[in-house]
Design a protein around this nucleic acid. Sequence first.
DNA 1: CGTGCGATGTATCAAGTTGATACATCATCC
DNA 2: GGATGATGTATCAACTTGATACATCGCACG
Lengths: 200, 200
Amino acid sequence: MSRKTGVLELAVLGLLHESPLHGYELRKRLSAVFGPVKRISYGSLYPCLKDLVATGLIAEDAAASVSGVGKRGRTVYKLTAEGKERLQDQLGEHGPSAWEDESFGVRMAFFAQTDADVRLKILEGRRSRLEERREKVSSAMSRTREKLDRYTLELQQHGLESVEREVRWLNELIATERSPAGGPGRGAVTARPRSAKSPG
Amino acid sequence: MSRKTGVLELAVLGLLHESPLHGYELRKRLSAVFGPVKRISYGSLYPCLKDLVATGLIAEDAAASVSGVGKRGRTVYKLTAEGKERLQDQLGEHGPSAWEDESFGVRMAFFAQTDADVRLKILEGRRSRLEERREKVSSAMSRTREKLDRYTLELQQHGLESVEREVRWLNELIATERSPAGGPGRGAVTARPRSAKSPG
DNA sequence: CGTGCGATGTATCAAGTTGATACATCATCC
DNA sequence: GGATGATGTATCAACTTGATACATCGCACG
């Protein structure tokens, strides 16, 4: 159900949980959730919305004018009770599908509505996934180091360091999750000093 | 010609320039070129190969057994003269299509066969592209900082720092490109010290 | 006032891609 | 002898993309 990508469904449900939205606005917010890469096209959004309406997880409200006279037929979508339930179910999932590349970002974007233990499981799952990848890339590099030109090598080195950097980031997030949440003097976001870099 | 993605075509031509390959091996190498994300499926590789054969840029050699008796019909693909020309054309391109997200990695993977001035243009183009993105993300963050929960904020902060890191990386690459290439005591890869990190 | 322009807004479609699947050969181990 | 898994070619329904069409709105410029 709901096409190939459960991620899109989740993102839509999550966004509509905050407030009802029409397609255009929904798409803009989805672009924010999915990041600068990977944009969502209407060709996948509309079918997804159609499915969600058909399944009864969301409802469309065609006559929703904003404040004055009928502006135009903007179909506004909102979560139904079933949709809220479904969203809670999805937010409770903490298997591999939650920490793969396509879904992790979306899952974390809705961490505010996610239980603390689930958050932790997902972060740890993501970390092992990346450590796995680091191992693979790293060993592939030592196997082929001699044969590669400097550019390929630079590319792989940069990729490897990106993975390592994300692992460190996850380590910090996990540590923050595990530490007691109410301590004094702690900001909303883990206050990392931006590691006083040399200017270029 | 050659479907939607010119990038795949370029990658195939580039790989076949090094040596003739059959589909399976080609796909493995493409996976390396395109990175751990974004894998190439046969559903796009085979049509691409078919196109390239039809256009006369590559040729297939069905009877190519490796060394002994006929193993099985492995169709081996190799570059034609036209294909080599085409590859040179593509490697000479240094417009936006060379430094967008989908193509930059592939372009850089074949930098060893690319002219120095073209390399520099692509690296600089990529850098402006990322600086542009950094500006957008950065200003979007300051506009919405108050409204966002810590997780969304962490996500965006991490994204922003990833972009900044890639810009620094490009700065180093560009500096290396501009400095005289034959200096003594320089390794194959720019010998960056891995920035003595605190352990955690 | 009109008219051109860009943002907002809904919707569709040809062309292209994915993930699964089918099928066959080969090497290795039990 | 047969089970398992890597190598290898190939296809297809279901799905996504990028382009396009179309309409409304605000608003600046002459």
